[in-house]
Simulated assay, not measured.
Amino acid sequence: MTARRRALLAAGPASLLAAAGPAAAQAGGERWPGRPVRIVAPYAPGGQSDTVIRLLQPRMAEFLGQPIVIENRTGAGGTIGAGIVAQAPPDGHTLLFESIAFLIAPLIVRGLAFDHETAFVPVGQAVAAPYVLAVRRDFPGRDLAGFVAAAKAAPGSVTYGTPGVGSPGHLAGALLESRAGIRLEHVPYRGGAEAARDLAAGNIAAVLITANSIKPVIDDGRALGIALTSAERRGSLAHLPTIAESGYPGYDMTSWNGLFAPAGTPEPVIGRLSAALRHATGDPAVRERLALTGNDAVTDTPAEFAARIRREREVVKRIVRESGIRVE
């Protein structure tokens, strides 16, 4: 037995899968992946999820030895795209690239034909990212205190756009309403890029979207960033204060993006997908490009991602209950 083989055996199954090449994982007795892999991004092109997965796509395809096709299927807070993947054969050829909305939607969207907790298996987290509260350039409030004051002066008249009903931005807005004692008007879009364009045009007062979607509009002076939703300053707009440090201690709504497969996908395939994702998020050039879009790259295992989901599901349930967010 060679030294390399002894080392791989000692490292365990995941290392063997990663070293063996695309033929290592078997699904239904066939070599996997046996054809191009489809990843459903349930939000609009140009938004957070779409941007991140397209940055990861080349390195993942390189690792798997098959093309990866990104398909945008928008609507209903990500549940339309999720439903497509939930009904797909569990063979690893159709996957879901979601955000923390994966935890939010089942709590507020009624009549779903699938159960998020049982219909998917986590593959791995890709990035972590805060949402950004930004206002149009002529908005009277220039910081969070001014924003809250404007909302209190005219309850229900301050509009804010998000990537959709049940999105992290929607939950962040509802949480801010609850903590600050204000009433805002939620305007859902199919993606953060659309909300950013409407803010730049002056059609809405504010947005709660990712740095990736809003930073270009802030940089060219068509909008003003005033606060981050994360517990600490992070990402490409880390010069902005957090909502927590601006008068609402304990406020934290940090989003993420991660990869999911339909429940029942063979474990060797999940292991291979996880290795492909880590290959991409661990690449220095990819990490640098992700950072420029306001994302912190993450390299974890399926078990670590699953543990995070279990912890955050309970937190999200509490926030939804306390904030009273509902789908109308």
Rank of each mutant, 00 (worst) to 15 (best):
A193E: 14
G271T: 11
A211D: 11
V269D: 06
W256M: 04
H279Q: 11
A231L: 15
Y248I: 07
A261V: 15
G191Y: 04
H186T: 03
M253V: 15
D283A: 13
S178Q: 12
D283I: 00
H279G: 02
I218M: 08
M253N: 15
N257Q: 11
V217I: 15
A196V: 05
A223M: 12
E177F: 07
G264Q: 03
L273S: 09
T210N: 03
A196M: 05
R179L: 11
P216E: 12
A227H: 08
W256F: 13
V286A: 01
T229Y: 06
G221W: 09
P249D: 09
A200W: 03
L171T: 05
G191T: 07
P284R: 14
T229N: 03
A172G: 09
D252I: 14
L175W: 13
G264P: 00
R233I: 06
A174N: 07
P188H: 05
V286L: 01
L277P: 00
L237Y: 08
P284V: 12
A244P: 04
R190V: 14
I214C: 08
N203G: 06
S236R: 11
L176T: 10
A244E: 02
E177K: 12
I182T: 10
R190L: 14
E232W: 12
T265A: 08
A238S: 15
W256L: 01
A180L: 06
A238K: 10
H239F: 13
H186N: 09
A200M: 03
R234K: 08
R287E: 14
T265K: 03
G225N: 10
H186V: 06
Y251T: 01
Y251E: 02
G191H: 02
K215S: 13
P268I: 02
A193I: 14
G271L: 12
L237P: 03
V207R: 00
T254I: 08
A238P: 01
R233A: 13
G221L: 11
R287S: 13
D252W: 04
S178W: 06
R179P: 02
A244Y: 02
A223L: 08
S213A: 15
A193Y: 11
P216N: 05
A172I: 10
E194F: 13
K215E: 14
V286N: 00
A231M: 09
M253R: 12
G271I: 12
P268F: 02
G225I: 10
P262Y: 01
S255D: 14
A276D: 10
A280K: 00
A174W: 12
G173K: 06
H186Y: 04
R289C: 02
P284A: 14
Y248F: 15
G264V: 15
S236E: 07
L175S: 13
G264F: 04
Y251Q: 03
A201W: 04
A172L: 07
H279Y: 13
I270Q: 02
P188K: 03
A196Y: 02
V269C: 07
